Computed example of a mutant assay.
Amino acid sequence: MHLLYCDESGTTADPNQKHSVLAGVSMFERQSYWLSSRLDTIAERFNPGDPNSLELHGNAMLAGRNFWRRFPLKQRSEAIKEALSAFNESHISNKLFACIIRKEAVSPNNPVQFAFEQLCSRFDHYLMRLHKNGDTQRGIIIFDKSTYEKTIQNLATDFRTIGHTWGVVRNLAEVPLFLDSKASRLIQLADLVAYSIFRKYEKNDDQYFDIISNRIDSEGGVIHGLFESL
């Protein structure tokens, strides 16, 4: 089973933000423990007394909000980079999928719904490529709990039955699951990945994205895992 942990970055309703990002990190199920453990060590360094209560959240870490305000910017930034590096250094089969939406380009449609169709179909095609190469695996998409939970589940059901713009989803084992990000280091990793991509497109700051850019799903020099609606 391949797990795609997803999160969004950018506030859909904020007129001051031009972009919305939906991104996910895909991994074979046995890779999840190793990556979670790497992220646990980062949290433990900042809060050794209660590391499980500390959430690795890109916006809060970089801005120094709440718990993170007690640490200097350099330390907070390096922690983000260390978490992203853990993903970059993980097994070669772990992939990155991302959709960057310029909100003007899809208005009046909801950019998150638009991005989910792209992300879902690209993950499905990745699993199909694995199947054609003799590695038959199903996949499941795991989101942070959000106001879009019902909408995304309905869309996923439609994609498996009626189909999406490019066909019918065939390789997902179930509709998306939704977890509290505080309970999942890998949802937190997806947040950091989405935030790093948002920083690149919204703030022209690519110091975080550059760490993970080579993990975008591709084959034969063709990039499949990145979609830009700009």
Rank of each mutant, 00 (worst) to 15 (best):
69 R>M: 04
120 C>H: 13
109 N>K: 15
44 E>Q: 14
44 E>T: 13
96 L>E: 10
219 E>P: 00
99 C>H: 03
192 L>Q: 05
32 S>G: 14
48 P>M: 07
14 D>S: 14
11 T>P: 00
118 Q>Y: 10
185 R>Q: 04
209 F>C: 01
104 E>W: 09
32 S>K: 14
206 D>N: 15
107 S>T: 14
209 F>V: 02
18 K>H: 13
76 R>G: 03
16 N>Q: 13
104 E>Y: 11
155 L>A: 10
149 E>C: 07
210 D>Q: 15
42 I>F: 04
41 T>S: 14
157 T>C: 05
40 D>T: 09
189 L>P: 02
54 L>K: 05
226 L>H: 10
204 N>D: 15
31 Q>M: 10
56 L>T: 07
67 F>M: 05
110 N>G: 09
27 M>S: 11
117 E>I: 00
82 E>N: 09
100 I>D: 01
140 I>A: 14
13 A>T: 14
163 G>D: 07
109 N>Q: 15
153 Q>A: 12
64 G>Y: 07
227 F>I: 13
182 K>A: 06
160 R>N: 06
57 H>D: 01
53 S>K: 12
198 F>P: 01
117 E>D: 10
67 F>Q: 06
49 G>I: 12
16 N>I: 02
43 A>N: 03
150 K>A: 10
158 D>S: 12
60 A>F: 01
